[in-house]
Design a binder for these strands. Sequence first.
DNA 1: GATGAATGAGACTTCATTCAT
DNA 2: AATGAATGAAGTCTCATTCAT
Lengths: 210, 210, 210, 210
Amino acid sequence: MARDATGGTGSGEQGARPAPAGAVPERLLAEATRLFAERGYDRTSVQEIVAAAGVTKGALYHYFGAKDDLLHEIYGRVLRLQTERLEAIASSAAPVEERLAEAAADVVVTSIENLDDTKIFFLSMHHLGPDQQKAVRAERRRYHERFRGLIEEGQRAGRFRPEASADLVADFFFGSVHHLGTWYRADGPLSARQVAAEFSDLLLHSVRLP
Amino acid sequence: MARDATGGTGSGEQGARPAPAGAVPERLLAEATRLFAERGYDRTSVQEIVAAAGVTKGALYHYFGAKDDLLHEIYGRVLRLQTERLEAIASSAAPVEERLAEAAADVVVTSIENLDDTKIFFLSMHHLGPDQQKAVRAERRRYHERFRGLIEEGQRAGRFRPEASADLVADFFFGSVHHLGTWYRADGPLSARQVAAEFSDLLLHSVRLP
Amino acid sequence: MARDATGGTGSGEQGARPAPAGAVPERLLAEATRLFAERGYDRTSVQEIVAAAGVTKGALYHYFGAKDDLLHEIYGRVLRLQTERLEAIASSAAPVEERLAEAAADVVVTSIENLDDTKIFFLSMHHLGPDQQKAVRAERRRYHERFRGLIEEGQRAGRFRPEASADLVADFFFGSVHHLGTWYRADGPLSARQVAAEFSDLLLHSVRLP
Amino acid sequence: MARDATGGTGSGEQGARPAPAGAVPERLLAEATRLFAERGYDRTSVQEIVAAAGVTKGALYHYFGAKDDLLHEIYGRVLRLQTERLEAIASSAAPVEERLAEAAADVVVTSIENLDDTKIFFLSMHHLGPDQQKAVRAERRRYHERFRGLIEEGQRAGRFRPEASADLVADFFFGSVHHLGTWYRADGPLSARQVAAEFSDLLLHSVRLP
DNA sequence: GATGAATGAGACTTCATTCAT
DNA sequence: AATGAATGAAGTCTCATTCAT
């Protein structure tokens, strides 16, 4: 009962932890993200998360009402980030081709830089409650529509093939992006920027008028 | 009495059984596929599967050694199907552009026709044991390489842009295909063939020399 | 209803149990009844119940969907018993005074013979879900009304004091009965029949015309 | 962030806070009484009590050593009140019949006026520690004996039926009183005084010589 | 071939309580 | 006098799997 002044991990069940730094909620989110990406939401127990963060279960439930609140928070983080960036790029003054190319490259780069979030996003959506799922889908939908708008703009401007369905092109491209998590390796031969450049190039070639 | 009455003398819990036809193992696989796609592997209990198939747990364990054997079997089914078809198309005598276009369209059509399998494939891989996972990845890899071979062939033949990385193009395209499960709806406005035609078209535009 | 005399000794929590006889669901109900009466619903853990019954938690949840299903079942048992007996007595051909006296004595005797159920009834109602609670109250209400009917019949027949509120008399008497659990001891000086005779006598004196 | 916001600086989650007035310990006791009566001791968390009282947990533990100290204090309050009043009534100079009638009516009135305490008394006794329980029972016993004394006095004085067991009569009557909490409603048709008059009347009829 | 009662481990969550501030 | 982050133990329930029949 009297707590050890050592402040070490001392309490039961965890081993020698590197005692991660930072505030508790942030540590919990960081470890949860890592673990969810590594082995999936359902194969990660709350116990593993708190052990990795160097706290106890009570601490987690002090900050998060339930395990899936962690998921929700992780989703919110990446959605906010990507939405903001797309908004900035899409509303710049550059020609539409350049804006589309940059938006495409950017979503690839941020997806790779936050590859854990990207993986989790598509692996674990079904673990959210119906309302949370609806909210995430709605936000995702807005993102999709903003991106599609760029394609339509290019078609109206006579730069992109008019017979392509803008909606389908967006789904086509985002499928590629969302699957980065299944094959991209940070320690592989390709940098994030290289992949971004190639993906962006492929997209532009697929819609541009010859 | 019991809320979740498994009970009684064997007359229990029929309920909304859709009178499943066919042999028991096939019924089990069919219902498992439907349920895994609908709510994920881990959110589907063995009890739900056997109830949907109209049998009892003992029957399931008579045919399958464990729950993840169902998953493994589902994976095997779709992998065999797609590998066979790709093989047939790629080795035909048509020009390489036509063969790539047809292969691309075909994988879209079969993915949509087996949309449940497609969904499960990427949602639930981490539930397989390490060995099974390795086996699936290896098979997937062969498929990937056969497809990439077509692109390289087209490049050597001077029909496709030589600067594109064939590997990356394949990952780009398969990402799009694998994500069909997240947005395609059978009751939506697009037929499988329409999506296939457009996706194939986008791929060809993205690699063909102008 | 009469309690299994098997139990007895069991002070240990697990391991070498006296292996209570009978079917598993009945054993679980019997032990749950004993423990709930002894220390209250909430101070009794599922673990304690299954240990007393000599089975595991899984077995309990095989038969009962939740802990409070045990409570519901216990309630149902005693309600059915008392309702049946009151019905039989009230509809006999004896004079109304005799029928009321017998009904009063009978509810005392059965309450004492099932003293654990009686205790639980009033201690733990708030642990039922809203719907179950409503069902129990409705059944209890029917019982109350049948009993009150006897008093009203006696008033109409000119045998009981007309100024007494039959409703209030019923509540008055049942209060006494329901509180038997707080003071009656099987090993005390009074037999169930003695208490029944006195309570019945007090009730009759309180309503009879002088 | 946290679903169950324990709340920021005091601006969080007011909602339906009835702007509690008075000193902190009194507010805590008042809210605890209300909540215990409404949903039971064990279904009421310390967090709910402090939220209702508009303070934090630290404040509660500053004034009360433990959760069940609240219960003990509530018990003490109602026991003191009823003991004092009985003492005053029983030792007056009126004839014994009048004193018994008045004591009976008074305990009904004070029970109804403090209906929450009455409910808690019998619902939550088993949450006290053994010593506290013993103390409460002893105090209760004294009350019972004082009341029984009135009945015996009336029997000796030749006003009450000598064959009735005074002890049993007291248990009979207090059962009725203690169960008021299960059926009496402040917004119902009966005033506290009406119930008191009828109960007192029933008691007197049940013991008085014809 | 098939049953379903029973297991046992582990999951998420709650909560009274403590203590540095 | 009061805070609220953090603890740690205990709670209820789920579920894949086994085995005697």
